[in-house]
Design a binder for these strands. Structure first.
Lengths: 146, 146
DNA sequence: CTTGTTTATATCGCAAACGATTTATTGTTA
DNA sequence: TAACAATAAATCGTTTGCGATATAAACAAG
């Protein structure tokens, strides 16, 4: 019986579980908007700066293009983004928000942050704990990303 | 431009990313053992206590049986667990380690914890930071699990 | 006892993730 | 400029994760 191999001693398992439960907590809110959590992440990238090639979006989210491309294809089918071939570099696909995609920003602003706060209202963590958590996660992310 | 909707302000995105990068860091080690991270989680549950029904394993991992059942079917095909119908309760499937599944414990003990330490050796977090992180994640998990 | 309800798994379909490979375009260099 | 290397996306196959549903066994009432 190796203590290192026990679930309760694993930060990694907690990370894996917390991430899943957060996504689950988001899900009903995203259902109302007709999107998913990863689609929301793409939208946040585009709300910050519109008309980006697939690669830039993928890099921002630390995802591979083979994850992002199908994601964008589904989002295009939903009518929230459009894609057109790059003019300077014809290998690129430039992804842009549609009117519907832009409108989702206000709807998300009205629902998502407050909804998540509500879900976590029973959580004893304080603002400074979340900031601390964010810093620790950033250390791990910075270390592991290539 | 709503600050709440910016990626950099999202603890949730960090959680999602850190969990993914941790899994990626594990992957080459698990490849050598011929398993995956979720399969490793199941093994940890069984190493702790063998011969458990699907439900107990799922509850321990905070997963649904519709995730765990196919996982176990793949693990059975790999020859690391076996399943047999419960004797008292014939609805249950009792999951047991095979010889091969038991042997994986030593191999995992020799490779996984040290391998993960190595991957994270460049990470500035100290032992107490990881403990703190674990506590914060537990708060979130406790709040969000049903 | 039998009818209805809960419980334990399993099945199905879809969206992610991601390794591996492919295709088209651009860049480089001999 | 012709051949080769690097880059941007896309495609393919597999494993997860999960909502919804199905199936079988156990349980509870009437």
């Amino acid at each position: 019986m190796h203590a290192e191999l026990q679930l309760d001693n694993q930060v990694c398992f907690r990370l894996y579980t917390a991430a899943r439960l957060i996504t689950q907590a988001y899900t009903p809110m995203f259902n109302e908007l007709g999107i998913t959590y990863p689609q929301y992440l793409v939208l946040m990238v585009l709300w910050e700066k519109d008309n980006q090639p697939v690669n830039d979006i993928a890099r921002r989210l630390l995802l591979e293009t083979n994850t992002v491309t199908p994601l964008l294809q589904r989002m295009e089918k939903l009518g929230i983004v459009s894609r057109k071939k790059g003019e300077q570099d014809k290998r690129q696909q430039i992804v842009s928000l549609t009117q519907k995609g832009r409108e989702l920003e206000e709807a998300a602003y009205a629902q998502i942050p407050s909804g998540m706060n509500e879900q976590l209202s029973a959580c004893p963590l304080k603002l400074e704990d979340y900031e601390h958590l964010a810093q620790e996660l950033d250390s791990i992310i910075e270390t592991l990303k290539k």
